[in-house]
């Protein structure tokens, strides 16, 4: 399967510049449904699912490759090459903020601007650095994921794979936006919450916008400010939105902050 099918890539809108939206841990490209359409007038909007999520090709899930964020960043680069993108805007939510940072460092020229929504360079506390979580809490999360199968069952899997756009499956697809193979969900949680990209941040040279929510337990304001300090010249906007998903809870605020930046 090619990159487009593998990552369930959708390209919409018109414009000479591209804007690539990357979803975080939890759901899929649907996370951008209230934000991405706003940019279709001026941008070539690129949406995709990370391998293992949404309508991606689950058979392409390689546990070794995806045991680091770098593996996910390689996919972003491949998508960029396939679509011949240059100087594009990368918009990454949650863990995809760091995936975008890595992709921009690995493939200079691919992204001209970064929008990091709720970024965190490291989730686990480390000495003076406050990530917000202890190792024990993350271990607990991995176990907890076993308890929530999100309606996933082996019998359903074949109809889920690659069929996210088929409305006739709608009735059966409760929770489908966030449906993930539990093993993959666990692996993605592990790579997300044990990642440490603090050393990469100072190398970022493209203009960067950080969108920070209030009362975000996944990526606190402190964590966002750390990213802001480490990426020189970056801009940080603290949204009125609360929680970790302003792209869903406060799309208008997100859109206007982004419009001012791009």
């Amino acid at each position: 399967m090619n990159v487009i099918g593998r990552n369930n890539v959708h390209v919409r809108g018109s414009g000479s510049r591209a804007m690539v939206f990357a979803h975080g841990f939890g759901c899929d490209q649907n996370m951008w449904r209230f934000v991405a359409p706003e940019f279709e007038g001026n941008f070539k909007v690129v949406l995709f699912d990370h391998v293992g999520a949404g309508g991606s090709d689950l058979s392409a899930y390689d546990p070794r490759k995806y045991s680091t964020l770098s593996g996910y960043a390689d996919d972003v680069i491949e998508i960029g090459r396939e679509l011949d993108l240059q100087d594009a805007v990368f918009v990454g939510h949650s863990v995809s903020a760091m995936i975008g940072v890595l992709a921009s460092l690995k493939e200079p020229g691919l992204f001209g601007r970064l929008v990091l929504v709720g970024p965190s360079a490291r989730y686990i506390d480390d000495g003076d650095y406050v990530g917000g979580f202890t190792e024990k809490q993350i271990a607990e999360l991995l176990e907890f994921l076993e308890d929530n199968h999100m309606g996933w069952s082996a019998a359903m899997a074949p109809s889920i794979m690659g069929n996210a756009d088929r409305p006739e499956l709608g009735a059966e697809l409760t929770n489908s936006f966030c449906r993930t193979d539990p093993e993959i969900a666990k692996a993605f949680a592990r790579v997300t919450f044990t990642s440490d990209n603090r050393a990469d941040l100072p190398n970022v040279s493209v203009p960067t916008l950080i969108l920070q929510c209030k009362e975000d337990i996944i990526a606190s304001t402190e964590v966002g400010e750390f990213v802001h300090r480490q990426i020189s010249g970056s801009r940080m906007v603290v949204l009125d939105a609360t929680g970790h998903c302003p792209n869903l809870s406060a799309p208008r605020e997100v859109v206007s902050a982004m419009q001012a930046f791009v």
Binding site: F25, S94, F133, L141, F144, N148, F177, H244, L248, S249
Partner: peptide, 9 residues
């Protein structure tokens, strides 16, 4: 974490 990343969205 689960609530914020899965349930709320």
């Amino acid at each position: 974490i689960y609530y914020e990343t899965h349930i709320a969205p």
